[in-house]
Simulated assay, not measured.
Amino acid sequence: MITTIIFDLGAVLIDWNPRHLYKQLFTDEAEMEHFLTNITTSDWNEEQDAGRSLQEGTEWLVQKHPEHEDNIRAFYGRWDEMLGDAFHDTVEIFRKLKASGKYKIYALTNWSAETFGIAKERFEFLSWFDGIVVSGDEKMRKPQPEFYNILLRRYNVKAEESLFIDDNYRNILAARQLGINSIHFTSAAELQEELPQYGVIL
């Protein structure tokens, strides 16, 4: 029986996407995609999610790619412009799960501690969680097993009674290795269809 729901945040409940900002800074979409794929890479950003300071990460990347300095500095200098709206259909699922009173609901997110406050101010539903574990605070991130275990231990959650929802399949595989039931998120509609397979009825 599922007693606990664990949500990822970005791309599940919150539309965070660097393109919201960089479409304003690039006139050529191919150049923008090259920059996001090869300069401000996911691996680089995840180092900040895992606790490296934004300043340290920025200076390291500027030194490596000085020809892109202005656009690199914009990544965190104008980070708030990367935040789009909430994904309202998924938030509505969250609301119904919360209102049912049947589940403890937590968030497990790869997010810089320095930027998470911006999201907390913008999205009221972040206050609905029974707890949020932020990678930047813990100095580790998904898919590291210990990061999941922090949540399980801190909130006395049994892996086999929990259901984890994340858009990144890498993170889903890591959760399953720990015995956590998991749904690979692709859309709110598909999530709603899959929940009953785990006995979770809205």
Rank of each mutant, 00 (worst) to 15 (best):
N17H: 04
W16D: 09
E114P: 12
R122E: 04
T3K: 13
G179N: 01
R141V: 00
L152S: 13
L61I: 00
I72C: 12
K139I: 00
Y198T: 04
A119N: 11
R19N: 08
Q144N: 06
S135M: 04
D130N: 04
T115L: 07
A175R: 04
A113Y: 08
N149Q: 14
D80T: 02
L9F: 05
F147H: 01
I14K: 03
A107S: 14
V134W: 09
I6R: 06
F123S: 06
A175E: 01
R176L: 05
L36T: 10
Y76I: 12
H184K: 11
A174C: 03
I2T: 14
L202P: 08
L195D: 04
G10I: 03
M32L: 13
P143F: 00
D166M: 07
R95L: 08
N168L: 13
P145S: 06
G51V: 00
A189E: 15
E194Q: 15
E138W: 01
N45Q: 08
F7A: 09
L108N: 15
P66A: 11
N168F: 11
N168D: 11
R78Y: 10
W44S: 01
P145W: 02
L202Q: 10
A74F: 14
L36A: 07
Q192E: 14
W79L: 12
V157K: 08
R95P: 00
F94Y: 15
K98H: 14
L25S: 01
I93W: 11
E114N: 10
W16G: 01
E31H: 07
L9Q: 07
P18R: 02
T109V: 14
N17T: 02
I72T: 12
R73L: 06
W111P: 12
D130C: 04
L36S: 09
G117V: 03
L195W: 03
N38K: 12
R154G: 01
D28G: 05
L163T: 15
N181M: 02
K158M: 08
A99C: 03
A174S: 12
K96Y: 05
I14E: 06
S53R: 03
R154F: 02
F147T: 00
E92N: 15
Y76A: 10
S112R: 08
K98M: 07
W128L: 14
A188L: 12
K139H: 08
D8H: 12
H68W: 15
A174E: 02
R176S: 01
A175Y: 00
T90W: 13
R73K: 13
N71F: 10
G117E: 10
F87R: 11
V200D: 00
A113C: 11
G117R: 07
W111H: 13
E46N: 12
L61Q: 05
D89A: 15
K64S: 07
Y155A: 01
F116S: 13
E114L: 10
E160Y: 04
T27D: 13
V62T: 10
Y169I: 11
L83I: 13
K120V: 12
H184D: 03
S127H: 14
G199S: 01
I5G: 06
S100N: 10
G136A: 00
H20R: 08
F147N: 00
F125L: 08
K102P: 00
F125C: 06
L126M: 09
D166F: 10
G57K: 03
N38T: 13
Q192S: 13
Q177K: 14
